[in-house]
């Protein structure tokens, strides 16, 4: 595909005097998984919200599926999973899925079969009729992911999708993400977990609002002459601090 799913160009954003994003650019083509890694407060979530068109940026443009954001219609093609579980606790999982599905424009039998499918993916089929208030943290996370998948979107934006999910289920979820990728979907994931970063096709390191490094995991490891992504991360951070003190 010639046109990237996400095309972010020179985006900058500051809250008051606090600069959150500095001239960030990012391209994500279809069929790729990109990982945004960086410490808390690095600006990952702000970048994600800027891509969704929910956060106003000070300069630069974000384009999704060839349309400049914010655009309401494009939202229909984006499956979004927020960092905090935004679920209706008094409703059952099925009711949550149905509600968000209807908002995404999925209706009737398509919605019913979609609910069955996504519940299988996140392994919640047996739990569908329980109220969310009775769910554990990990189950809520899985339900949030299921909601992101409900409309079978072309682009998935997942903010910390695997926090609180046990290793076995994490494997299953990544297997599902790989499958989606093979079906030509683009996936943008923010994460803290380094072994997840290794699974991405491409990585972007963000620290203090700056894109420190970008490339495939192997490229990055070579560039920094280290063995793991974790070490890349630490080394890049150190270098940034040194540059900072030089100035």
């Amino acid at each position: 595909m010639a046109q990237p799913m996400i095309d972010v160009r020179n985006v900058a954003k500051q809250f008051g005097a606090n600069v959150v994003l500095k001239q960030i650019s990012l391209q994500l083509p279809a069929g790729r998984v990109m990982g945004l890694i960086g410490p808390s407060g690095a600006g990952k979530t702000t970048l994600v919200k800027a891509i969704l068109g929910m956060e106003k940026v000070d300069s630069g443009t974000t384009t999704v599926l060839g349309t400049e954001m914010p655009n309401r219609q494009i939202m229909q093609k984006i499956g979004y999973m927020a960092q905090s579980d935004a679920l209706y606790e008094t409703l059952t999982a099925r009711e949550n899925l149905r509600f968000f599905g209807e908002l995404m424009g999925v209706t009737g039998t398509a919605l019913t079969s979609s609910i069955t499918h996504v519940a299988q993916v996140v392994n919640l089929t047996a739990e569908l009729n329980r109220r969310v208030s009775a769910y554990s943290g990990g189950m809520k996370r899985r339900l949030s992911l299921a909601i992101a998948l409900i409309a079978d979107p072309d682009l998935l934006i997942l903010d910390e999708p695997t926090v609180g999910i046990d290793p076995e289920l994490r494997q299953q979820i990544w297997a599902e993400l790989r499958q989606l990728k093979q079906h030509g979907k683009a996936i943008l994931v923010t994460t803290h977990v380094m072994d997840e970063a290794e699974r991405c096709d491409e990585l972007m390191l963000i620290r203090e609002g700056i894109a420190l490094a970008q490339g495939t995991p192997d490229d990055l490891k070579q560039e920094y002459a280290v063995d793991t992504i974790e070490q890349v991360f630490l080394k890049a951070g150190r270098l940034q601090d040194e540059n900072h003190s030089d100035r």
Partner: peptide, 14 residues
């Protein structure tokens, strides 16, 4: 406060 409003607005709802 629970973030569902933000989540709602991440759908094409007006």
């Amino acid at each position: 406060t629970t973030g569902t409003l933000t989540r709602l607005l991440a759908t094409p709802v007006r």
